[in-house]
Amino acid sequence: MPLPFRSCFIPGLAGLTLAACTTAETEVPVEVRIANATPAVTVTARGETTPVGTPNADAADDPAIWRNAANPAASLIVGTDKKAGLYVYGLDGKTRDFLDAGRVNNVDLRDGVAINGQNGILVVASDRNDVANAKLALFRLDSATAKLTALGKVDAGAGEAYGVCMYKAQEATYAFIVLKDGTIHQVALDASGATPTGRIVRSMKLGTQSEGCAVDDRTGILYVAEEDVGLWRFDARATGSTAPTKIAAADSKNLVMDAEGVAIAPIGEKDGYVLVSSQGDNAYVVYNMRDDSYVGRFRVVNGAIGGSEETDGIELMLGDFGPAYPGGLFIAQDGHNAAAAQNFKLVAWDDIIKALGLPR
C-alpha cells in the first residue's frame, strides 16, 4: 500500500517529521524521519527500467528476475504494471516485451518447470481483475526472445488477489497467493498440459492486510509481510504446520509500516538474509535467516540515477549478472520516479553488502 503520492502529511505515524516532500514533478527524494527509527546506510542504483505505461498513478508494483547462467548480462526482469499487465526488461532497463494482462499485482517465476511438454520458465502473477475471486495468471517466458505467452488462469479462492510467490519443491511447483485480508492459499500448479490447472492444498491466515512474500526453496520456508504488523515465516511444505512465527514487528524502529515487498538472499545450504521494504520511511531492512536477528537498514538514494521511495515490491538474486552486477541484483519498485511514471531501480548487491559491512 503506497503512502500518499503528493502529500506531506502521513497519518498514523507518531513522531514523524518531513525534511522534504517529493511530488511527481521533482527528483528530490522524500526524506521521512521517524523519531525512533534506526539509522540507515545509503546506496545508489546502477540502472533503472523504462517507466511503466500507466502515468500519474500508483502502477508499477513487483519485479521478478530470471538469470541467464550462460550469459548473465542477458538476464531478464519481469515487472508488473498493476493497472495494465506485465513488462519484460533487459538489464539495460529497456522494455523487451509487454503483455496486456489487466490488473496483475505481484509476480514471481521459476525456471525448469514442465510447460506444455517441455521444461521452461513459468511466470505466475496474482490476478485481481475480479476482486471477489482471486486467480493466478500463468505465462511462459521465452528466454531467447524475451516474450511472454499467456497459458491461462487457475482459481485461487474467494477474495482479492494481492501477493504471490513461487515454491519449487521436489514433488510439485507451488504458488502461494496472499489475499488482501491476510489469507494465504498454497496452490499446486500443473502447466504440463494444454491447459494449466491448480489445486489449493492448504491455507494459512494472518490477521490483517498482507502482500509481499518469498519462499526459500532450499529450506522450505515461506516469508510473508503483514503490512501494519511485521514479518512472519511459515513452513512452506504442503504437509507442514500452518502456524506462523513472527520474525520482526513493524515497530517504527527497524521496520516502519507499511511492511511491503519481501526478498531473500540464500547463502550456502541454510544461511542468508531476508529483506523487507520498510515503506513508511523509504528504507529496506535486512534480517539474518539463521536466527531472525536484525542485520541493518539501507536506502536507495539519488545518484547518477534517481533513488527509490514508497517501494512496494522488491526482488533479489545472487550470482553473476555481468560487469555492472557481478555479485547479485537487487530490484526495487520506485513509487515516485520524478515526473515520469513509476519504474524499477536496479542496485548491485555488492554495493549493499559493502554499505552494511557484511561479508562477501
Results as ranks from 00 to 15, higher is better:
residue 142 D to W: 03
residue 322 G to Q: 01
residue 150 A to C: 12
residue 316 L to W: 02
residue 217 D to P: 07
residue 101 A to G: 04
residue 161 A to C: 09
residue 297 R to Y: 04
residue 110 R to D: 06
residue 341 A to S: 10
residue 126 S to P: 02
residue 270 K to Y: 10
residue 99 L to H: 09
residue 167 Y to A: 05
residue 258 D to K: 09
residue 7 S to V: 14
residue 353 I to A: 00
residue 91 L to M: 06
residue 193 G to F: 01
residue 56 N to W: 13
residue 331 I to N: 07
residue 179 L to G: 05
residue 17 T to I: 12
residue 222 L to V: 07
residue 252 S to H: 15
residue 187 V to I: 15
residue 343 N to M: 12
residue 146 A to I: 08
residue 139 F to L: 12
residue 359 P to M: 01
residue 197 T to W: 10
residue 341 A to I: 07
residue 170 Q to A: 15
residue 28 V to H: 14
residue 307 G to C: 10
residue 91 L to R: 07
residue 40 A to I: 03
residue 278 S to R: 06
residue 222 L to F: 12
residue 310 E to R: 13
residue 245 T to W: 03
residue 146 A to D: 02
residue 318 L to E: 06
residue 357 G to N: 01
residue 209 Q to A: 09
residue 329 L to I: 08
residue 134 A to W: 00
residue 9 F to A: 14
residue 206 L to Y: 05
residue 334 D to G: 13
residue 160 E to P: 11
residue 244 P to T: 02
residue 76 L to E: 04
residue 86 L to R: 08
residue 13 L to N: 11
residue 115 I to F: 00
residue 270 K to I: 02
residue 334 D to R: 11
residue 119 N to W: 00
residue 258 D to P: 11
residue 302 N to L: 09
residue 85 G to W: 01
residue 90 G to R: 02
residue 19 A to L: 14
residue 67 R to Y: 05
residue 303 G to C: 07
residue 346 L to K: 10
residue 18 L to G: 13
residue 277 S to G: 15
residue 224 V to S: 06
residue 98 F to D: 05
residue 188 A to K: 15
residue 131 V to W: 08
residue 216 D to H: 09
residue 138 L to A: 14
residue 131 V to L: 12
residue 123 V to P: 02
residue 96 R to W: 08
residue 271 D to Q: 15
residue 228 D to K: 06
residue 43 V to R: 06
residue 97 D to K: 04
residue 190 D to F: 07
residue 184 I to V: 13
residue 143 S to N: 08
residue 200 I to R: 11
residue 13 L to D: 13
residue 6 R to H: 15
residue 321 F to Q: 11
residue 11 P to H: 12
residue 219 T to C: 05
residue 355 A to P: 07
residue 284 Y to F: 15
residue 14 A to F: 10
residue 27 E to G: 11
residue 283 A to R: 08
residue 237 R to Q: 08
residue 41 V to S: 12
residue 249 A to R: 06
residue 189 L to N: 12
residue 62 D to S: 11
residue 182 G to Y: 03
residue 254 N to P: 01
residue 312 D to A: 08
